[in-house]
């Protein structure tokens, strides 16, 4: 069952189409990774889900209702983005206090604990915080809100590797303690892969993949071997990219079974999530010499 659904959603900014007829659902009590390239439409989608913006056309439903100006829904939503707006003269304490006022399920003890873990100083003005400290504050708000719908748009920018790991661990703990629907937009795909139940890939305002994270590894394969064998195997299948060198070819193929490739005499490599996303979102004009992207087969 989906907690969040977008049906035929288009969002325009002037003559720029940020989202183009998007249909997608986000499963309840699951962590869904939302990935794609810069300008793909990820942040726009998250803005629609969190009531920060309104669709040009189509329907956005969060727990069955339009979130825009809907306090009943938004009380259950906590969205933290990399560019979260904070008044610079406010202190960390004042920002957390405000978050507590606006999120009915706020867990003060958890917030205190996280403030200590991330070594934030409550009396420090937000304008004086480093990029990483600002992100840490966003992470504290996202986790302590205990919001049933949690939207994270690259909330870790500026956090060091240790702090990011702490965040991921605490997020997993929180999801177990208080199940929530999480959408996590990130460019660090492999780093968050272990958190994800589902993966949605968006490119040029369209959803190009929506699948359980586990199955994504199997849905895209890299096969290599003699060119004639690769040609034969690729025939009738969707080839995302291909490189030929002499009589040897390497192809990234979508929707093929690894066993079939092995039976065809090819070498098979399961791609890490990051490479799957790269393969799905690389366009023909961006391929290096010797590569063909999205070739007809």
């Amino acid at each position: 069952m989906d907690a969040i659904t977008l049906t035929g959603v288009t969002k325009r900014f002037g003559d720029v189409v940020a989202l183009d007829g998007v249909n997608v659902g986000f499963r309840r009590h699951a962590i869904t990774g939302l990935v794609g390239r810069n300008g793909a439409g990820k942040s726009t989608l998250l803005d629609l889900v969190s009531g920060r913006a309104r669709a040009s056309s189509g329907e956005v439903h969060v727990e069955g209702e339009d979130p825009f100006e809907n306090r009943r829904v938004l009380g259950d939503v906590c969205a933290v983005t990399e560019s979260q707006p904070y008044p610079t003269r406010f202190t960390v304490e004042a920002a957390l206090h405000t978050a507590a006022l606006l999120h009915p399920r706020w867990d003060g003890e958890l917030a205190d604990d996280l403030v200590e873990v991330f070594e934030l100083r409550r009396r420090q003005r937000i304008g004086k915080l480093s990029r990483g400290q600002r992100s840490a504050m966003g992470v504290v708000i996202a986790l302590a809100s205990r919001a049933p719908i949690t939207v994270l748009d690259e909330p870790y920018v500026g956090l060091d590797a240790v702090a990011r790991r702490v965040f991921y661990d605490r997020l997993l703990e929180e999801v177990v303690v208080a199940p929530r629907t999480v959408i996590f937009s990130s460019h660090l795909i492999d780093e968050i892969a272990h958190l994800l139940d589902y993966l949605v890939v968006i490119d040029h305002g369209r959803v190009v993949l929506d699948a359980p994270a586990e199955s994504v590894h199997d849905s895209v394969l890299e096969v290599s071997g003699p060119r004639v064998l690769v040609d034969a195997f690729a025939d009738g299948r969707e080839v995302l990219s291909r490189a030929d060198l002499g009589g040897v070819s390497r192809a990234t193929v979508r929707g093929a079974a690894g066993d079939d490739a092995v039976a065809a005499g090819l070498r098979v490599r399961a791609l890490p999530l990051q490479e799957v996303v790269v393969a799905l979102t690389t366009h023909p004009h961006e391929a290096s010499r010797g590569h063909v992207v999205g070739s007809a087969s």
């Binding site: 969190s50 009531g51 920060r52 100006e69 809907n70 306090r71 938004l74 009380g75 939503v77 906590c78 969205a79 983005t81 979260q84 707006p85 904070y86 008044p87 610079t88 003269r89 406010f90 920002a95 405000t98 978050a99 606006l102 999120h103 708000i141 919001a147």
Partner: peptide, 16 residues
Amino acid sequence: TQVLPFTLGLSGTRRG
């Protein structure tokens, strides 16, 4: 200019 975006960012509404 400061508190409106801040509260919207924390799931507040314009009306609120």
